[in-house]
Design a protein around this nucleic acid. Sequence first.
DNA 1: TGTGGTAACGTGAACGGTCAAGTTGTTTTA
DNA 2: TAAAACAACTTGACCGTTCACGTTACCACA
Lengths: 337, 337
Amino acid sequence: MVDKKKTVTIRDIARMANVSYQTVSLVINDKPGVSDPTRQRVQQVMQELDYHPNKVARMLTTNRSHTLELFVVDVQYGGRLADSTKNMAHVAKEAGYSLLISEAESSHLGEAFDSAAARMIDGIVMYAPRLKMSDRELDKLCNGLPLVRRDYVPGSKLAWVGFDQVYATRLAVEHLLELGHQHIAAIPPDADLINGYWRYTTWKNVLLENGLEPGPSCAGDYSMKSGYEAAHKLLDSGQYFTALMVGTDGMAQGALRALHERGLRVPRDISVISFDNTELASYTEPPLTTVEFRFLKQDEIAIKYLIEIINDPNMELHQRVLMADLVLRESTRPIHK
Amino acid sequence: MVDKKKTVTIRDIARMANVSYQTVSLVINDKPGVSDPTRQRVQQVMQELDYHPNKVARMLTTNRSHTLELFVVDVQYGGRLADSTKNMAHVAKEAGYSLLISEAESSHLGEAFDSAAARMIDGIVMYAPRLKMSDRELDKLCNGLPLVRRDYVPGSKLAWVGFDQVYATRLAVEHLLELGHQHIAAIPPDADLINGYWRYTTWKNVLLENGLEPGPSCAGDYSMKSGYEAAHKLLDSGQYFTALMVGTDGMAQGALRALHERGLRVPRDISVISFDNTELASYTEPPLTTVEFRFLKQDEIAIKYLIEIINDPNMELHQRVLMADLVLRESTRPIHK
DNA sequence: TGTGGTAACGTGAACGGTCAAGTTGTTTTA
DNA sequence: TAAAACAACTTGACCGTTCACGTTACCACA
C-alpha cells in the first residue's frame, strides 16, 4: 500500500508542464530548441515531482550505458588489486562513468565479453596478469568492445597500460651491482605471471651482461608466506649470495623474517631489494629499498585511456608504458670487502 | 564497414525459426508452453546466430537489473577495503548478480540512492564506517531500495552485518589482563569511525570494571604511520604501561617499529595485541597476537543477506553479528614480576 | 455432438526513453 | 509581398524485451 507511488516518467512531466514529452527530453539533455520560460517551467515540475530520468530506458535507445567493466582474470586471491577497484571507480566517476567489477576465468573470457556487450557496457579494463593470448584471439573475443589492459604486455599491440618491468628490474639489479654485489639471488613472482617472467629473465640477463653468474632463485606467489619459504630454500641451497631481489614488498617481509631466523642481518649480511613501494616498505625491519610502482597512476591512466577509445573508436591503439623509480632505504648497502 | 553487423534480436530468431517472438522469449527463459522440437529448433537458431539476449531491454520490462551496488561512503584511502570488492563480486556472481562499485560522500548519499534507483539496481551494500545517520533518515534516503550495511552499527535496527566490536575488544583486553598486565595503553582507530568509538570505550570500560586505571591512549587512522606516531606519543607521555592494544595489524607494524626505536623489546618489555589477523600479522617481528576478523565471511554474509531481502522485500530486517576470535602468537606474554 | 480443457503458439501493448521528421507561427530576405 | 529561414514545439516510430491476453487445434468426456 505504500508502493502505490508509480514511477514518474517523462510523459508525466510533460503533462504537468503542458508540453510534449520530447520537449521534456530536450530540457533533460540540455539541448537547444526550448524557450527559457518553458525550460524553467519544465525544470520546476521535475523538481516538484522528484523526477529522475530512467537510465535503463536511456541505455536502450542510445546503446550506451556510461558504465565500464573491470575484468579480473585468473586472479585467485587478489592482494595486488588492493585499492585499485575503488580508485578506478573514482576516476571513472569523475569522467561520468560507473564501474562494474567482475571476475572471469580465461577459459570463459568469451562469455564475459558477451555478457558485457549484452549490458551495453561501454568499455573494459582488463587486469589479467597471467593471460597469454594472441592479439588476434583477444580481439576476436572482445567483439568490438573497447578494451584496455592494465598490465605490462610487451608482446601485444592492443591497448595496454603497464610498468616497464624490464626497466624496473634493471633498476633493482643495477643498484645492487653498483653497491658491489656480485652474488645476487632472486625471489621473482611466479613465472606464470607476465611480470614474473620478465623480472626473472631480466635479472638473469643483466647479471650475464655484467659477466656474473646468476645466483640461486626461487619464485613466489605474492604471498608473504611464499617469500618466507623461498628465502629459506635459497639459504638451504647452500649457494652463496650477498644480495636478494624480491618480487614484492610483502614477499620481502616474509623473506626478511626467514633471514632473521637464520641469524642473518639485513643489510649487514645480505642486502634486500623489493618492488612496489607499498606502505609496508617504510615499516619493515629494516625499511626496504624498493622499486616504486605507482599503481594508482596506472589505474587512472588505464581508465582515461579507455574513455578516449570509447570517444574515438577509430583511434589508433597504442601502449602506455610507465617507468618505475628506485626508492632508497636501509635494506641495501655496499658490500664490505 | 565492419560494423554492418546489426545486433540480432529476438525477432530475428523468431523469423528464422518460424515461430513468434514470444515463443523465443519462452525458450530463453526456460518457461513451459513450448514443444520440445520447437524449443530445440529455436535453440539451434540462437546458437547459429550467436544470439545473446539484451539485458538492458530485459531490465526495462522486468524492472530488475540483477545488479547490486557497493557504496563506499566517506572512505578516503581505503586500505581496509582491499579484497572485499573482488570477493563481493565473486559471491554476487555465484548468486547471479553483478556488482557495481561506487564512492559516495555522506553529504550526497541521497543522489547516490537516486542514481542507483534510476539504474534499477536491485540492492545496495553500504560500507560506511563513519556514517552517523538515524534509521529514519537513512530509510527515507534509500527510497525503498533493499539495503544492507557491512558495518557494526549497534544503534541501528536496519539491516547490517558486522563484527561485535565490544566482544572483540573485550577479548583483547581480557587476554592482556589474564597475562597479568595492569597498565594497558591503546592505539584505537579514530573515534570518528564507529568501530573506533567502540574499541576505545570498551577498552576503557573493561579496565575500569577491573578496578584499573586506563593507560594512555592515542588514536590512529589505520595507516602504519599513524601507529608509529601514536606509539611514540604514548612513550613520550611518560606514562607507564606494559601492554599495548593497537587497532589493526598494520598500525601495529608501525607501533612495533616505534617501540623498537625506543629500545623496547616485544613482548619482553611490552606486550602488543592488535586486530584483524591479516597476512601481515604472521610475519611481523614478533608475529602478532591478534583478534581475527573474518572479513571475507562478513562480505559474503552481507551479499547473501541482501539477496534474501531482495527476494522477500517484506522480510523483517535484523542484524547479523559476527564474533571475532583470538589468535595467539608471540607478541604477548605474561608480565614478569 | 457439443462442451470444456489444455498444450502450443501468436498478437498488441507496455517499459521509459531518444531520434528524426513533422507542424506551427513569426521573422528575415529578395 | 511571396518565399525562405528559423525558433519552438509536437508526433510517430523505435530500442529489444516481457506481460497479459487471444487464438488455434486437438483431445477427452458427458
